[in-house]
């Protein structure tokens, strides 16, 4: 627990949870909640009608939850998971969004990504680029960042207040 890293405190500073990044996490959290709730309802009530669309909704919901967690958690591994999940979301909303317009017969039932997330105020389309921009601006600089030390957390707190 009290094992100190040899890396300087500065290298362990990660601003990922500072400032407006917290708003990003909050919006991701709300979207994850909404997508999970809706996909649960779809699966419970009418999974048989469109297994593919509703399974896709459920998968998207899980990925949103994972992305929210990955944005919050420190360390290099979570940073990669954050990138992977956000890229997956962006691909999903672009591909499914396009397909739902070009080939509506493929997606007769709503998914979170249909019409580029129209049912969710287009938040699924806007959020991934914001998330990628945020991640790109706050890279994990040192492997020592994997150590979840008090120092790192204090630094993040102090930054958030600035």
């Amino acid at each position: 627990m009290n094992e100190t890293s040899t890396a300087p405190v500065g290298a362990r500073r990660r601003g990922r949870l500072s400032g407006i990044g917290r708003v990003l996490v909050a919006v991701y959290g709300v979207l994850a909640l909404a997508a999970t709730g809706r996909s649960l309802v779809q699966i419970v009530e009418k999974f048989d009608e469109a297994p593919v669309a509703y399974a896709l909704s459920a998968l998207a919901a899980v990925v949103y939850i994972l992305a929210t967690v990955a944005l919050v958690m420190p360390g290099r591994t979570w940073y990669r998971i954050a990138w992977a999940t956000i890229l997956f979301e962006f691909t999903g909303v672009v591909v499914v969004g396009l397909l739902s317009i070009v080939r509506p017969d493929l997606f007769p039932h709503d998914t979170v990504w249909s019409w580029f997330g129209r049912g969710y105020l287009f938040i699924p389309l806007v959020l991934p680029p914001l998330g990628m921009w945020w991640l790109a601006r706050h890279p994990v600089q040192d492997a020592a960042a994997d150590v979840r030390g008090e120092g790192a957390r204090t630094a993040v707190d102090a930054e958030g207040r600035a």
Binding site: G19, I20, R22, V23, A26, G160, R161
Partner: peptide, 8 residues
Amino acid sequence: RGRWATVV
């Protein structure tokens, strides 16, 4: 207790 919490 930061300004961004108000935005949240």
